[in-house]
C-alpha cells in the first residue's frame, strides 16, 4: 500500500458519506414505504355514509369490487383533513378522466360532516365507503391521510401515494402507473 493511498483514505471516506447523506437526508422520513405494495387488498366491506335513509349515501364498496377487474384508485379522505381539501380538485380531475374507478374511503369521519364536505366540494367518487372507526384504514396501513392507492384488476395494491395529490403528482406519478397497468 503506498503512502499516498493512505492520505487519500479519509477523503474518500468523507466523499462516500457525503453522497450517502446527500441522498439519505433529502428523503422525507414522514413518507414510509407501504408494506402492502404488490399484496392483495385486505378483505373488507364498507357501508355507505349514513345519511338517515336506508340506502345511505355513496353506495359503499368492498374488496370484491376491487377484484372485479379493471383498475381502481382508492382515495382515503375525511372532512377533518385539511390537505384532503387541497387534493380534492385533483381527485375530481382524475375521476373525470375515467381511466380508473375512483373509490373514496371516508376515514374516521362523522357522517354529518362528510356529507356536508361532499356537498360543498362535489362528490367525484364512483363509490364511497364509510370507515368511522378506522379499522379498515388500519388494514390498509393508513397512517396519515390523504393517502391514495392504485389497485390492479386482480385486486393487488400496486402503488401508494401518501399526502395530498397535486397536478404534478397526478401527471407524473399516478397517471403513469395507471397507464402501465392498462397495458
Amino acid at each position: 500500500m503506498s503512502k499516498r493511498a493512505i492520505y487519500l483514505a479519509p477523503l474518500s471516506v468523507f466523499l462516500l458519506m457525503a453522497v450517502y447523506f446527500a441522498i439519505g437526508l433529502t428523503k422525507d422520513p414522514k413518507i414510509l414505504p407501504s408494506a402492502l405494495i404488490d399484496k392483495p387488498v385486505p378483505e373488507f366491506s364498507l357501508p355507505p355514509i349514513d345519511n338517515g335513509t336506508p340506502q345511505g349515501y355513496g353506495k359503499g364498496f368492498s374488496s370484491a369490487d376491487l377484484k372485479a377487474g379493471g383498475i381502481s384508485v382508492v382515495n382515503v379522505f375525511a372532512s377533518w383533513c385539511l390537505p384532503c381539501r387541497t387534493e380534492h380538485p385533483f381527485v375530481t380531475k382524475l375521476a373525470k378522466m375515467k381511466v380508473a374507478k375512483v373509490y373514496g374511503l371516508n376515514f374516521k369521519d362523522a357522517p354529518k360532516y362528510s356529507l356536508k364536505w361532499l356537498k360543498e366540494l362535489g362528490d367525484p367518487y364512483d363509490a364511497i365507503g364509510a370507515d368511522p372507526k378506522g379499522r379498515v384504514g388500519i388494514d390498509w396501513g393508513v397512517y396519515g391521510i390523504p393517502e391514495t392507492f392504485i389497485v390492479d384488476g386482480a385486486g393487488k395494491i400496486r402503488f401508494k401515494y401518501v399526502g395530498p395529490m397535486n397536478g404534478d403528482i397526478l401527471e407524473n406519478q399516478i397517471l403513469p402507473v395507471i397507464e402501465k397497468l392498462k397495458r
Binding site: L32, A35, L36, I138, D139, W140, G141, Y143
Partner: peptide, 8 residues
C-alpha cells in the same frame, strides 16, 4: 401490525 405497516 407489521403485515399492515411494515418493519418500520
Amino acid at each position: 401490525v407489521v403485515a399492515r405497516y411494515g418493519d418500520f
